[in-house]
Simulated scan of single mutants.
Amino acid sequence: MKKIILTVLALSIFITSKAQDGETPEIADNATSEVKLNALFMVVGAFDVTYEYLLNQESGLGIEVFVPFDEEIRDDINYYVSPYYRLYFGKKYAAGFFLEGFGMLNSIKETTFDFSQTVFDGPVIEREENITDFALGIGLGGKWLTNSGFVGELSFGIGRNLFNSSDVSEDFVGKLGITLGYRF
């Protein structure tokens, strides 16, 4: 957690010092990278960071990594890694309303109980199993961009796991984000 806070603080200091050159900073026409942090998940106990490479004014490729650090969230999900492609419909370069197609390698912790034993024969047996699956999904959202390069996003997506379809595993996965970042 300390590393996360130090990284965000260092990024903020760098951005602030760059913005104090005496001129109004403008995003370079060749700014093609974004680094973003999901503020919503930081509040609830997970680290969710995204890197996006902008292909042109209408599209971008990215990868999102989600790792929980709170025990309550870690009880349900171990991690996910989600590459995506976005198509933008705004007037600014790679900003505005977007549609997203994504894949998601996800791992969950599933707890099952064996009730075949009665109270008189022995205790109920609890089993924990890590299940890894891959999902395909779609999403939508909006991206806002300031002249100095700060990025804000609201996004939502839903996908379906392709493997491990059983009573134990989850069939659907979701993505939700209130994301803040910087374009460089």
Rank of each mutant, 00 (worst) to 15 (best):
Y53D: 14
R74N: 08
L154Y: 01
I27K: 01
Q57T: 07
D21I: 01
G152V: 09
S59R: 07
V44F: 14
I108K: 02
L154F: 03
Y93D: 07
D75Q: 10
N161H: 08
D29A: 06
S148E: 09
L176R: 11
K109S: 14
I27S: 05
Y93M: 13
M42W: 13
N78Q: 03
N106Q: 04
D167P: 02
R183S: 00
M1N: 14
T112I: 00
F47E: 15
R160E: 10
L37M: 10
F69N: 11
I77T: 04
L145A: 03
V65L: 15
K3Y: 15
E129Q: 14
L180E: 03
G159S: 11
A39N: 09
A135S: 00
T111S: 06
L145N: 02
D114C: 10
G62S: 06
F89I: 06
K3F: 08
V49T: 12
G60M: 04
Q20G: 07
T146A: 00
S17P: 04
L105W: 06
K143R: 15
G149W: 04
F41G: 09
A19T: 15
G96S: 04
G174W: 14
K143T: 05
G96M: 08
A19F: 02
G141M: 15
I125N: 14
V151E: 01
L136W: 13
S59E: 05
E26H: 08
A19M: 00
F69I: 11
I108F: 09
I27R: 04
K18I: 07
K36H: 05
V168Y: 11
I27V: 11
I73K: 02
I4H: 06
K36Y: 07
E153K: 10
L176T: 12
L40C: 13
G103E: 12
G45R: 01
L105K: 01
S82I: 14
E52A: 06
T32L: 09
Y79S: 09
K2G: 05
K92L: 08
G96V: 05
L61R: 08
S116K: 09
T111P: 06
R86N: 15
F163I: 11
F115C: 04
I125H: 08
V65E: 00
G96T: 01
I13W: 13
S12K: 08
S17Y: 13
T111I: 14
Y182H: 06
S17I: 08
S155C: 04
F113G: 12
I15K: 07
S166E: 02
N130A: 11
V44H: 06
